[in-house]
Simulated scan of single mutants.
Amino acid sequence: MKGLRSLNVIGLFVIWILSYVVALCMVVVSGRPATFLEDFRVTWADNHVRQLDGGRGIQLVLDQSSGCGFASRRQYLFGKVSMKIKLVPGDSAGTVTAFYMNSDTDTIRDELDFEFLGNRSGQPYTVQTNIYAHGKGDREQRVNLWFDPAADFHTYSIRWTHSLIVFGVDDIPIRVYKNQEAKGIPYPKQQPMGIYSTLWEADDWATRGGLEKIDWNKAPFYAYYKDFDIEGCPVPGPANCPWNPNNWWEGPAHRALSPAQAKNYQWVKANHMIYDYCTDKSRYPQTPPECGLDNL
Rank of each mutant, 00 (worst) to 15 (best):
Thr105Ala: 11
Tyr156Arg: 04
Asp229Tyr: 14
Gln64Ile: 05
Met273Ala: 08
Ser65Thr: 13
Leu112Arg: 03
Asn264Met: 12
Gly79Asp: 05
Ile165Trp: 01
Leu87Gln: 05
Ala98Pro: 00
Asp229Pro: 00
His48Ser: 06
Arg74Thr: 06
Cys241Thr: 12
Ile172Ser: 04
Ala133Lys: 04
Leu164Asn: 10
Ser19Gly: 15
Tyr224Gln: 08
Asp171Arg: 12
Met83His: 11
Lys178Met: 13
Ser92Leu: 09
Asp53Ile: 09
Glu250Asn: 12
Leu7Ile: 14
Asp39His: 10
Trp216Cys: 04
Gly210Ser: 04
Lys2Glu: 13
Arg139Glu: 06
Gln191Phe: 10
Cys278Ile: 06
Gln141Pro: 00
Gln180Arg: 15
Tyr265Pro: 01
Trp160Gln: 02
Ile195Gly: 02
Arg109Asn: 14
Ile230Ala: 01
Gly11Tyr: 11
Ala151Tyr: 06
Ala93Ser: 14
Met193Ile: 05
Asn295Phe: 02
Ala150Met: 05
Arg120Leu: 14
Glu140Thr: 10
Tyr225Cys: 01
Ser92Met: 08
Thr161Asp: 04
Glu290Ala: 10
Ala260Gly: 04
Leu257Thr: 11
Met26Val: 11
Tyr265Ser: 05
Arg73Leu: 14
Ser103Ile: 06
Tyr275Cys: 03
Asp53Thr: 11
Asp204Trp: 12
Ser66Ile: 06
Asp113Val: 11
Asp106Lys: 12
Ile214Phe: 02
Asn244Trp: 07
Ile15Glu: 07
Lys189Trp: 12
Glu250Lys: 05
Gly79Lys: 01
Glu115Gln: 14
Met1His: 07
Glu38Gln: 14
Trp16Gly: 13
Arg142Lys: 15
Pro289Gly: 02
Ala182Gln: 13
Arg50Cys: 02
Tyr224Thr: 06
Asp204Tyr: 09
Tyr275Asn: 03
Val29Ser: 03
Gly251Arg: 07
Ala253Phe: 08
Phe167Ala: 03
Arg5Gln: 13
Ala34Asn: 09
Lys189Pro: 02
His48Trp: 10
Gly118Gln: 03
Asp229Arg: 09
Asp294Ala: 07
Ser103Arg: 01
Leu52His: 07
Tyr275Gly: 01
Tyr196Gly: 01
Tyr76Thr: 02
Met273Tyr: 04
Ser6Asn: 13
Ser258Thr: 15
Tyr277Gln: 05
Val143Tyr: 02
Leu296Ile: 08
Val49Leu: 07
